[in-house]
């Protein structure tokens, strides 16, 4: 039982950064922009969040910084793809290269200036990042441990996912915004301000992605700055967007599934003859299968928003 609880808790923690990246990417793709810069924006958020936390010892400021850094990366992407109509794939890949590099660059720079040649988050902030037991609910045996004793990122991520689902599916704005991703021409004709909403969604999405990056820097790495701390989670997030069929609520349980994939290798008994690499491959393999299966079934509702990858120019009807 203890083992199982530990397993679930570990899976949730492994799932959290992916959840943020996925939610951010959903915001992008819902307005028709496939942003392959998730890894880069996460790295930027990781770096900004960590460094601000390191300097100010204030978790709130660190989170704001992580959000802001991710948002700045996304703003760059939005300017190039929405306004200047550059190729989305190429800009996204560039953003990844740029974001990862600048995070490592700044990390290197900060380390070289520190006395101990290593960066460790101060006490205040690490304690703030510890598990928060929700009063009462956290005391329920088993369930309390599995559901209500996590660090702040986990709760925040789930709240963001639910808010996003409400935004997309329960508000007029969400209806309008999703229409942009499906058919910007129709949205434009219906009087929706396409460019404005593209910017808003892409930038907020980038910010959310950035917070996910901060998680990897501040929690996964145990409060010490390491290079390449995002380590490919951004790409798993891109995969999860497909797996979750572009829906924020699906992203919650989807990220849990992917979180399980990530930690499975540590929990499977040694005598099970499945190589570790296969566990790591699972998120991508499963996503690829889902992708092909959906295309065979021609599922329109579970497909990528139709205008993804195509920039919109009103006069090119």
């Amino acid at each position: 039982m203890d083992m199982l609880i530990k397993f679930v808790v570990a899976a949730v923690v492994a799932a959290t950064p992916i959840l943020y990246g996925t939610l951010g990417e959903i915001m992008n793709e819902r307005v028709g922009h496939i942003n392959l810069g998730v890894e880069g924006m996460m790295s930027m958020g990781a770096c900004a969040g960590f460094m601000v936390g390191y300097i100010t010892d204030n978790l709130f400021l660190a989170l704001v910084a992580a959000f802001a850094a991710g948002a700045v990366g996304a703003l760059l992407y939005a300017f190039l793809t929405v306004t200047l109509m550059a190729n989305q794939n190429v800009v996204g890949l560039t953003l990844t290269i740029f974001g990862v590099a600048i995070a490592n660059f700044v990390g290197f720079y900060m380390i070289s200036r520190s006395a101990t040649k290593s960066l460790k988050l101060p006490e205040n902030i690490t304690s703030a990042l510890g598990s928060i037991k929700i009063p009462l609910l956290g005391d329920i045996p088993v369930l309390g441990q599995v559901l209500f004793q996590y660090n702040i990122f986990v709760y925040l991520g789930v709240i963001i996912a639910i808010l996003m689902a409400v935004y997309f599916y329960k508000t007029k704005t969400g209806l309008n915004v999703r229409a942009i991703g499906e058919n910007p021409g129709a949205a434009d004709a219906a009087g929706i301000r396409v460019t404005k909403w593209k910017y808003i969604n892409i930038v907020i999405g980038g910010g959310i992605t950035g917070i996910g990056g901060a998680f990897t820097a501040m929690i996964t790495a145990g409060g010490v700055w390491i290079s390449d701390c995002v380590g490919g989670l951004g790409w798993i997030a891109v995969a999860l967007v497909i797996f979750a069929s572009w829906k924020p609520v699906n992203a919650i349980w989807g990220s849990l599934v992917f979180g399980i994939f990530r930690i499975l290798k540590y929990y499977v008994p040694k005598n099970v003859p499945v190589p570790i690499a296969i566990y790591d491959m699972l998120p991508f393999l499963v996503t690829a299968i889902v992708l092909v299966a959906n295309s065979i079934k021609q599922r329109k509702d579970n497909a990528q928003p139709a205008s993804c990858g195509i920039n919109y120019f009103r006069e090119e009807r």
């Binding site: 007029k172 969400g174 229409a179 058919n183 129709a186 219906a190 009087g191 929706i192």
Partner: peptide, 20 residues
């Protein structure tokens, strides 16, 4: 100028002011 994956109702109210 319709959104393919939306229902008739959703297309009809698309872009109008007011709450959902």
């Amino acid at each position: 100028k319709l959104v393919d994956v939306y229902t008739a109702a959703e297309n009809i109210i698309l872009g109008t002011s007011g709450k959902l």
